[in-house]
Design a protein around this nucleic acid. Structure first.
Lengths: 192, 192
DNA sequence: GACTCGATCCTAGCATCGCTAGACAAGCGA
DNA sequence: TCGCTTGTCTAGCGATGCTAGGATCGAGTC
């Protein structure tokens, strides 16, 4: 029994190594540089080993996305809990969201831009994704306003943040006015 | 002279055929199905012909994006001009934007999700893209509110629309409540 | 302690991708 | 009619995601 346990442990370690290496490679050189060959070379195994852990490249992206979702949820909660009052909490939340997207572009892409083969807005949505949304909901629900469903409000606010994050990073929005855009967004959307 | 003119005319026709074929292929089978080989086969020329019109696949995507931007600008202006009053105009504009994204997913991807090698938010931004933004600005500038820069307001509103469009289509948002989300967005952001 | 056998991993290869070099033919001007 | 430019095609390069099949290694058994 002990032998099998050791093997499973080693497999788990290697799987984490794959995900971490994929993430690092994507963060430094972009997802285009994350090829199965390069990834295999980095972890010092041959290509087919990757396929004994994941169905394919998509699932590797998905694994990075889940890891990122967990981190994002933590970052959002940390930012929210450090602020006093609903209004300040929402501002801090928005800044933390955009900050996360800017600091971890590859992870953000894995979560929302690339196809990681993950289900969303369904019952079989992976837990980390649900939890990241929940982290948003916790703070945003307070400022949804009377008669507005908190979930719906969170969706709209999230969409706005997502739009700002992606358009800014793609060079579609001038980078200078980021802070003013956040203030405007919170000013108008949040009911305090 | 006349010979050369005829050749140029034929070249222009063929270039439009390439763009139209790429768009059609992308709209029916997704951008992944738009390979240079398949595209060449559809237009009944060999692969290298594509490269005598465009530098590469990126530029073909960019051409589809520009075509889409022109159409989107027209659609937005049409919707806005058919509505009475600033508030109704903004609602119509938002609906038209999301409608365009939903009806032309491949074109929308070419414009905002894929790399078409286009410059944004700079002086050398292609005219169609500037014009599409201008079409948004025309209606949204009216409801920016006192002391808020119309351009900044338009950017934020646009980002929100873009977020709704992409997240909805990627299955990240439940498709049912689209209309309620638009109403909430217009209600809060627009100052009437 | 030798052996069997299953798990594990690697070499090699497939089809396809974007892109390009070089051969070839067609049609222009002289 | 001839020469030459212009245009097009065939063939191929390196790289991609993914997989089949053989080699190797080590655990468990006599």
């Amino acid at each position: 029994m002990s032998v099998q346990e050791r093997k499973e442990r080693e497999r788990a370690v290697r799987e984490r190594l794959i995900v971490a290496t994929a993430r690092e490679l994507a963060e430094h050189q972009g997802w285009d540089a994350v090829t199965t060959r390069r990834l295999a070379e980095r972890i010092e195994y041959s290509q087919p080993v990757l396929y004994s852990h994941f169905r394919g490249k998509r699932e590797i992206i998905g694994a990075v996305a889940l890891e990122g979702a967990t981190e994002m949820a933590a970052a959002l909660r940390a930012a929210a809990s450090a602020a006093d009052g609903p209004r300040a909490r929402v501002t801090a939340l928005a800044r933390a969201y955009l900050d996360f997207a800017e600091r971890n572009p590859a992870v953000y892409d894995a979560m929302f831009q690339l196809d990681g083969g993950l289900a969303f807005a369904k019952e079989d949505t992976p837990e980390p994704l649900k939890d990241a949304f929940a982290a948003l909901l916790e703070s945003l629900g307070e400022v949804a306003g009377d008669g507005v469903h908190p979930g719906l409000f969170t969706e709209v606010f999230w969409a706005a943040l997502h739009g700002l994050a992606t358009l800014t990073r793609a060079g579609r929005l001038p980078p200078g006015d980021a802070e003013r855009r956040v203030e405007l967004l919170v000013d108008r959307l949040a009911v305090v």
